[in-house]
Write a protein that binds this DNA or RNA. Structure first.
Lengths: 116, 116
DNA sequence: CTATGTGCTACACAAAGAGTAGCAATTAGC
DNA sequence: GCTAATTGCTACTCTTTGTGTAGCACATAG
């Protein structure tokens, strides 16, 4: 449903105050939301291409995420498929360092917990 | 269940490759995961304090998130409650800019979509 | 032995997501 | 116009995840 897409300024799941950061966390804390943004950072992709890159995402969920991200102004439909908007690319800019960090996290985690 | 906590290096929900970034996105893309890290950034909090700050989080889910974040090395139990580890604080460092950005996002969004 | 606060568990219910099938629309070749 | 392939997407059933409320076991304070 379009109406439960988290929007800053109005109450969202888990935050009656509607604080922008909570709306954002609600939006990004849904399955595949972060992954879709990540995939689109390299350029526009069609629906089926996104599906293929996010191995197990069901079309139902992908469609929901795309609608949510679209009406949140992070994704738009261009000639060659779905792509990040300016705001979407800004957000990816913040997300980008997570890539390198996750590597270090993985190393440290596998070091301290060698198979658990 | 402890066994389906996303861990880099082994397949996670949505990524058979076990890429660290996908494990991280899986971990953070669960309800309240981002919010809990955000709340803990200001200092240690007890279980009930976290509950109170994340208005509608159920104890079931909060307990799951805390277990996941703990065994992922981002959160630990100290004398005064749950708190971020060094890695957790590092991750919050990456997350921090999202606060300011979400404000601008909110402004721009409410400007282009003035109520819907 | 009550009173309060803690971390949590146990349900019953609801919402979100997975997985598969398949349709309407478009493009291409014949 | 008919077939075939590809696209975005809906429909459906089933499983997983999260909500909401109650309440227990433990601790500290009186």
């Amino acid at each position: 449903m379009a109406s439960d897409i988290p929007t800053p300024g109005q109450p969202v799941r888990g935050s009656k105050s509607g604080k922008p950061i909570m709306a954002l966390f609600d939006l990004l804390g849904r399955r595949w939301a972060l992954g879709v943004i990540w995939q689109l950072s390299e350029g526009a992709l069609t629906f089926r291409q996104i599906q293929a890159r996010c191995e197990s995402v069901s079309p139902t969920v992908l469609n929901s995420r795309l609608k949510e991200l679209t009406s949140s102004g992070l994704v738009a439909r261009g000639a060659s498929g779905y792509e990040l908007t300016d705001m979407g690319r800004e957000l990816f800019g913040l997300l980008k360092p997570f890539g390198a960090w996750s590597q270090r996290w993985a190393d440290e985690l596998l070091d301290t917990q060698p198979k658990g």
